[in-house]
């Protein structure tokens, strides 16, 4: 049995896209209330890990336990209903839906989600643009919307896939503030990042991923001491 404070426990996870084997035994834990990152170069399997945890990758094997429940064989709608919510790398804003419809799309899965008014307090811009077509928003606004719409569902754990990718520094900073605020409010967050400078400002611990495996774990407080090692891993 996993320790009681571990919310998500991934063990020896393998995943395939068609013929290609993309995850080779990913193993990591996400403790409740922490912000945990998966760091690594492009194409090492970070996004595939998230998509496997959400059940979007059909061919997956090993063990993924959420709150003690084994989800490896569940369809993704059932997994979501356990309390996980996903913000994909490409943001997944629907062009045939208005901003408001995008916001209200993810169904409430549990009581205790953030009330809509509070979501709009965090993201006032989304209320102003509620009637626009979802994809007419700027890149930064679309990213905000993609995060905002999963806060009201009652999910306790958020999977954020590269929320800062391609955004201006000032917006990246704003997203950093939001992630810290969400952590304060008790959300558990699994974050995929390539930008470890950003990751260092929000996370409690970092897993380094290479070739579809976790090769190291670095607590955030030890990050500076391990900077050389990390730079070698990431090839920067």
């Amino acid at each position: 049995m996993p320790e009681p404070h571990i919310l998500l426990s991934v063990k020896d996870l393998h995943a395939h896209y068609g013929e290609s084997h993309v995850l080779h035994g990913m193993t990591f834990d996400v403790p409740k209330g922490e912000v945990v990152t998966l760091l690594g170069r492009n194409g090492v399997g970070k996004t595939s890990t998230m998509r496997s945890v959400m059940g979007i990758v059909a061919k997956r094997a090993g063990s993924i336990r959420y709150g003690g429940v084994e989800t490896i064989a569940m369809p993704s709608n059932k997994i979501a209903r356990l309390g996980l919510a996903y913000c994909p790398e490409e943001r997944g804003i629907f062009s045939s839906l208005s901003v408001r419809e995008n916001m209200l799309l993810p169904p409430i899965i549990k009581p205790g989600g953030m009330p809509l008014e509070e979501v709009y307090q965090l993201f006032p811009r989304l209320l102003e643009r509620a009637n626009s077509q979802g994809t007419k928003l700027s890149g930064g606004e679309q990213q905000m919307l993609a995060i905002a719409r999963i806060l009201r569902t009652g999910a306790e754990m958020l999977l954020l896939d590269e929320p800062t990718e391609g955004l201006a520094p000032v917006i990246v900073q704003h997203i950093g503030e939001i992630i810290r605020e969400l952590r304060k409010r008790g959300f558990t967050i699994l974050l995929v990042e390539q930008n470890f400078h950003f990751a260092a400002t929000v996370a409690d611990r970092h897993y380094v991923v290479e070739h579809g495996q976790v090769i190291d774990m670095i607590p955030n407080e030890d990050l500076t001491a391990n900077m050389d090692k990390l730079k070698t891993y990431l090839g920067v």
Partner: peptide
């Protein structure tokens, strides 16, 4: 119609 796997990952 746009993105079935994401809609399903929201719990639908």
């Amino acid at each position: 119609t746009e993105n079935p796997s994401l809609v399903q990952a929201f719990g639908i």
